[in-house]
Write a protein that binds this DNA or RNA. Structure first.
Length: 204
DNA sequence: GGGAAGATGTTCT
DNA sequence: GAACATCTTCCCT
C-alpha cells in the first residue's frame, strides 16, 4: 500500500517516527527500480524551527516545503550533495522530514556503480548525501508528488515485522541550534544507520 | 576508530 | 565573505 496524502498531512515529528520501517521506492527511466527500508529520519519544524531551511521564510530553493504534504523537497548542499525530504503538515506549515539512511533492498548493483565499486552494503546508503547518490536523486526530483504510484519517488507501507525494530531518538546531526529537540529518529537495531557511534545509543 | 581538513554551490549577512 | 540538514581522505592513536 502506497502512503497517501493523509499520512504526510501530520506533524513532521510524527511522520518522521512513522516513516521508520517503510519502504522507499525510486523509479527513474533507464535505471530500473531501486528500493530500501527507511531506518533513519529527521524532523524539521518549518517557520518556528531555527534549524529548518524554512525558518527565514520562503525562497526559490525551499519553495517545495511551503506546498502540499507528500511532495518531495530535494536540495543541493555543501557544493556536493543532494538531500531528500518529504513535506509534512498543512500547506504553508513548511514542515518536512529528511531521509537520512535506508537499508538497501533492490538495485544494489546500480547503487554500487554510482557510489563506487569497493563500497560495502552497509555504507551504500547510510547518510543523506550517500542515499541520494546511490538512488540517483538530484534536483530534477524536487517537488514531485510522492503519493502517486506513477511518481519516480514514493513510499510503501512497511514489509518488515515491526517487532524487529526499536525506534530511538537523538539530537539532529550537523545542527547547532535547538539541541533540546531530539528530532532524529532511527532503528537502533539496524546496522544501516549513519555512523556517528555516540549518537546511536538509544536515548529514549 | 576517530578527529581534522578540504572540496565547493547556494543562500544570507 | 561566511555558513551550511555532507562525505571522503589522510593521519593519529
Amino acid at each position: 500500500m502506497i502512503l497517501g496524502r493523509s499520512f504526510y498531512s501530520r506533524k513532521s515529528t510524527v511522520v518522521s517516527r512513522d516513516l521508520i520501517g517503510k519502504k522507499l521506492i525510486v523509479r527513474k527511466s533507464h535505471s530500473g527500480s531501486l528500493s530500501g527500508i527507511i531506518v533513519e529520519t529527521e524532523a524539521y519544524g518549518g517557520l518556528k524551527d531555527p534549524a529548518s531551511h524554512a525558518f527565514r521564510g520562503e525562497t526559490k530553493r525551499n519553495k517545495a516545503m511551503f506546498g502540499e504534504a507528500g511532495f518531495t523537497y530535494v536540495y543541493f548542499t555543501y557544493g556536493f550533495h543532494h538531500c531528500l525530504n518529504l513535506v509534512c503538515g498543512r500547506i504553508g506549515d513548511a514542515q518536512a522530514v529528511l531521509l537520512r539512511a535506508i537499508e538497501p533492498v533492490d538495485g544494489l548493483e546500480t547503487m554500487r556503480e554510482r557510489r563506487g565499486r569497493s563500497i560495502s552494503d552497509l555504507e551504500l546508503t547510510n547518510g543523506p548525501g550517500k542515499l541520494c547518490q546511490a538512488l540517483g536523486i538530484d534536483l530534477s526530483l524536487n517537488e514531485v508528488d510522492a503519493t502517486k504510484k506513477t511518481s519516480p519517488i514514493y513510499v510503501l507501507e512497511g514489509v518488515q515485522d515491526s517487532s524487529k525494530r526499536t525506534i530511538a531518538s537523538s539530537v539532529r546531526i550537523g545542527i547547532s541550534v535547538a539541541q533540546e529537540r531530539r528530532w532524529r529518529f532511527f532503528d537502533s537495531r539496524s546496522p544501516y544507520v549513519s555512523h556517528r557511534s555516540k549518537l546511536n545509543l538509544p536515548t529514549r
